[in-house]
């Protein structure tokens, strides 16, 4: 298997994402290109559902690399994220050594704590050489892990290496492509951010969102797609929504309306399917109570002008 080279320019990066069905804007392509070129981790921050995780998946697919995913959660520690010793096997080994009459302690210790008994977890796995090229390591929703966990990542992020006290330092020949995502439910420490390139993934513009809907929900007609995007954009422009719908919600909604054989938006269907777009009862109640017809009218006039 030959290694797919990383893109050589920002335009190439844009083309790579496009080929893998990801509609990216130029700022994102720039920062992605730089991350690949400078071999630095990429730190993606943004609201839920704007396609942060998808970037890593698309990158792995586009470059033909293995995708290693580390989903973060509170209490995540070294033994689940980096490495773990295989205790049962170690205990058996000790018994065998005992039975064989081996008495040299230091020899036994170096036997027991050797790579043979090391269980590799995602981070260590990502440092292993791969025929297809360095893998893509996706550290997803880092803000879900507690602060203590961030410190485990510093070494691997800055030097692509992991130090195991019993063995020593394991270093990657070629650094993996690291993508970190967070929803900003808390601030990540500056020490970690400093080692990465930072990018805020924003909601897409109407134009780009329409492209995304066309690409991902081909079943939706041109008129429906226009209206869906215009409606969602109008919703996002509302100041007092607690959580604005993300791109993922737009796609879900477009798919839902397709399944219902809708060719255009009508108030009744919108009211019934609002739960696909908005996930807070307050928001749903607010939109249903007063603003639904107003929003729909806006949407209709806007799309009529375009068509």
């Amino acid at each position: 298997m030959t290694m797919t080279p990383v893109p050589g320019s920002i335009d190439d990066t844009l083309a790579l994402l496009k080929a893998a069905d990801y509609v990216a804007d130029r700022p994102l392509a720039t920062v992605l290109y730089l991350a690949l070129k400078m071999q630095r981790p990429l730190f993606l921050e943004g609201e839920a559902g704007v396609g942060k995780t998808e970037i890593a998946k698309v990158l792995a697919a586009g470059l033909n690399r293995k995708l290693i995913r580390l989903q973060c959660y509170e209490g995540l520690d070294v033994s689940t994220a980096v490495y773990e010793w295989n205790y049962p096997a170690q205990m058996v080994e000790i018994r065998i050594a005992e039975a064989a009459g081996q008495t040299d302690r230091s020899e036994l210790a170096s036997d027991i704590f050797s790579e043979r008994f090391l269980v590799k977890r995602p981070v260590l796995e990502a440092l292993e050489p791969d025929l297809a090229g360095p893998p893509v390591l996706l550290i997803d929703e880092l803000d879900r892990a507690d602060e203590a966990f961030e410190a485990f990542l510093l070494e691997v992020l800055s030097d692509s290496q992991v130090t195991i006290p019993e063995i020593g330092t394991i270093r990657a020949d070629a650094p993996p492509i690291v993508i970190i995502t967070t929803n900003r439910t808390r601030e990540i420490h500056d020490a970690l951010k400093r080692r990465c390139l930072y990018h805020w993934v924003d909601y897409p513009s109407a134009e780009r969102e329409l492209d995304i809907v066309h690409l991902k929900v081909p079943g939706a007609g041109a008129a429906l797609a226009q209206e869906v995007v215009a409606f969602v954009q109008a919703l996002r422009a509302q100041e007092d929504l607690f959580k604005a719908p993300g791109v993922a919600e737009t796609l879900d909604w477009a798919t839902a309306l397709c399944e219902l054989d809708q060719i255009a938006l009508d108030p009744a269907t919108v009211a019934d399917t609002l739960g696909v777009l908005l996930k807070y009862q307050d928001d749903i109640a607010r939109v249903q109570a007063s603003e639904l017809t107003k929003l729909l009218d806006q949407t209709k006039t806007k799309t009529a002008a375009k068509l």
């Binding site: 720039t30 920062v31 991350a35 730190f43 951010k193 400093r194 390139l197 930072y198 805020w200």
Partner: peptide, 8 residues
């Protein structure tokens, strides 16, 4: 922007 900014 990618290198100098680290907060929105």
């Amino acid at each position: 922007h990618a290198t100098l900014v680290s907060r929105r």
